[in-house]
């Protein structure tokens, strides 16, 4: 039991990220409303950023900006995950904007945000 709590303590950030990812994925699957599906996808994105950012952290070091003229890798945290998170945020903003725009177009055509109803109506159009 003690071992379990120790492991939990060592990986708290990653575990929270995984749970957030699961919450986002469940939202994506369970809701029929397209806007809520997009929200779920964004929660999943956030979980991935948390995971990446927590990988870059090193205990007792500072942000990767030159302080006091020290250029030793022992003083700063890992800058690579920060750059990756930046890329991820930009891409997720673009993808959410495109998804929302497509949702607006769907709403203008079918006057509903319910994904099942939209699918039914699309099938009806094919007949």
């Amino acid at each position: 039991m003690e071992n379990f709590w120790q492991v939990m303590n060592q990986h708290l950030d990653e575990i929270v990220a995984v749970i957030l990812f699961g919450v986002g994925f469940t939202t994506l699957l369970l809701h029929r409303n397209l806007i809520k599906k997009i929200l779920g996808l964004n929660i999943m994105d956030t979980a991935v950023y948390l995971f990446l950012a927590s990988l870059g952290y090193v205990e007792g070091r500072t942000a990767p900006i030159l302080t006091d003229g020290i250029t030793s890798a022992e003083k700063y945290i890992n800058p690579v995950p920060s750059g990756l998170v930046l890329t991820g945020i930009v891409v997720s903003v673009s993808v959410s904007a495109l998804m929302l725009a497509l949702t607006i177009r769907l709403y203008r055509r079918y006057h509903t945000l319910d994904f099942d109803q939209i699918t039914l109506m699309m099938k009806g159009e094919d007949d």
């Binding site: 990986h11 708290l12 990653e14 575990i15 990220a17 995984v18 927590s54 205990e59 890992n78």
Partner: peptide, 14 residues
């Protein structure tokens, strides 16, 4: 995730 090296350790492989 639990099998990953500990959070915030200095000599993590990444």
């Amino acid at each position: 995730v639990v099998a990953l090296p500990p959070f915030g350790a200095e000599n993590n492989p990444y």
